[in-house]
Design a protein around this nucleic acid. Structure first.
Length: 458
DNA sequence: AACAACGCCAACCGCGGGAGA
DNA sequence: CTCTCCCGCGGTTGGCGTTGT
């Protein structure tokens, strides 16, 4: 903060609006403040007010918002002036609705930052924290109403992959493996079909991993010496997918959160079961994994349930049709700078758009986009031939649980592959040098010529 | 056509932090 | 060290247009 002393002295002593004698006691100040508040205008800004404010800022720049109010005679408090300028009158603002790329980025950023709207805005040049906040709040409401995950699976996948690849000081993957393996012991799940598969809400947030090996799905590796972490989480993933395939298995997936794991669509609490209306605040990824109800504990329990699902698959191979919904891996080891490439790419895309404020050009159709628009992919709609495929599979003789390897699934999976092939997110490439400085420099405020240069309109 | 629900947006409010007196 | 002031942030509210019933 580099305010000039003289400017500060010109500022109105009152917190936001009015000059008050320095010798007044607090009660008098408060009284006068209230009186002053009533004199100030509230509500929507008129074009004439905008013009006055803009003209003033163009001439004098931004130094002290209370001075703006005083000098211009606007019946607006300094705070209101600042808000109006930063959210609407700034020349570098980008108008219009968020593009799909921006939405993706917001979701990804929120998965890492939580409700740090201003920080998030720094990754979205031309966008304000208020815009992002409004978008997110609307999104949360929508997700709550439709009982869909707040964090689309593809976003979580990227977060998961990035964390797995780049985390150095905290190896989340190994931590999970340790949790799952109970030290050096192998996890031998209970294969008894009939255990209720609960916590599907939680399962929808399991870690995304590459396509599930069918032998893993059938539980063959559960007793294998080579049964590693990936196998376990693959099975975990598959179990979660079962909830998507067979929602009827979980009558409790209706938006209430009173389970011990307390997953909240994309958010999960570290400790407290959540009942009733929930406040979707910070992202799950931000919470430390230090609670008995946490992610690792959850994974451990659901790995066991996975075996149940593997059993189910031996009788109902059609279940795997929906097996391509990714999910998340919460972690507290996050490099926010990882998002710079995407932010840059996003900015590049925006720059190529025909005009500021217009809608984005026809999307290339990344699956991530699709997930943002609709978290629930109807694979059957996307490929009606699946019906035939499933029918043929279901009409085949039941598989023998004792020899699940006999199941010839390769054709089945390959037939499905066109459906699944497009579900990997397309991450824009990062062009070196676009962001030459810290992302904070890309903040809308920082981009503004007012802040860096002289406070005088060029 | 009327009403309600929803979505979006703008603006306000309270609070905390930084800086200067 | 304390107080005051300003700024910025996050939460919340209210208005208005759109959509659904």
């Amino acid at each position: 903060m580099s305010r000039v002393k003289s400017e500060r002295n010109r500022a109105m002593p009152d917190r936001d609006q009015i000059d008050l004698p320095s010798h007044d006691d607090n009660s008098v100040k408060a009284s006068q403040r209230r009186r002053a508040d009533t004199q100030l205008k509230k509500g929507p800004w008129t074009p004439s007010e905008d013009a006055v404010l803009e003209a003033y800022v163009r001439k004098h720049g931004v130094q002290n918002w209370n001075v703006v109010q005083k000098d211009t005679g606007l019946l607006r408090c300094g705070k209101s002036c600042r808000l109006r300028w930063s959210n609407h009158l700034r020349p570098d603002l980008k108008k219009g609705t968020f593009t799909k790329e921006e939405k993706n980025l917001i979701i990804k950023l929120h998965s890492r930052m939580g409700n740090k709207w201003a920080q998030m805005a720094s990754y979205l040049p031309g966008r304000t924290d208020n815009e992002i906040k409004n978008y997110w709040n609307t999104r949360i409401k929508k997700c709550q109403r439709t009982a869909t995950p707040i964090y689309p699976a593809n976003i979580c996948l990227e977060a998961s992959n990035e964390d797995q690849h780049e985390s150095t000081d905290f190896n989340f993957r190994e931590k999970l493996a340790n949790d799952l393996l109970h030290g050096n012991g192998l996890y031998v799940p209970n294969f008894t079909w009939g255990n209720s598969i609960d916590d599907r809400e939680s399962l929808s947030n399991a870690s995304h991993l590459p396509d599930v090996s069918f032998s893993n799905l059938l539980g063959l590796n559960f007793s294998s010496k080579n049964y590693d972490f990936m196998d376990q989480v693959n099975q975990e993933k598959f179990l979660r997918e079962s909830e998507i395939s067979f929602p009827m298995l979980n009558p409790t997936i209706n938006g209430t959160f009173d389970g011990s794991h307390a997953f909240l669509n994309g958010n999960f609490s570290t400790s407290r079961p959540i009942t009733g209306p929930s406040k979707m605040e910070l992202p799950s990824f931000q919470y430390a994994d230090s609670d008995p109800n946490s992610w690792s504990t959850y994974l451990r329990s659901s790995a066991m349930q996975c075996a149940n699902y593997a059993d189910l698959c031996t009788h109902s191979p059609a279940a795997i049709v929906t097996a391509k919904f990714e999910c998340m891996a919460p972690t507290d080891s996050v490099q926010l700078e990882e998002l710079l490439p995407e932010a840059h790419a996003l900015s590049s895309v925006e720059n190529q758009q025909p005009s500021v404020g217009s809608l984005s050009p026809p999307s290339v159709g990344t699956p991530c986009d699709a997930m943002v628009e609709s978290s629930e992919l109807d694979l059957f709609e996307r490929d009606p031939s699946l019906y035939t495929l499933i029918d043929s599979c279901l009409s085949a003789p039941p598989l023998c649980p004792e020899s699940p390897d006999e199941f010839q699934h390769s054709d089945f999976l390959s037939a499905l592959s066109p459906v699944f092939a497009s579900t990997e997110p397309a991450i824009p490439q990062y062009e070196q040098g676009f962001f030459s400085a810290h992302p904070e420099d890309s903040r809308a405020d920082a981009f503004s010529p007012w802040n860096t240069v002289p406070a005088v309109f060029p």
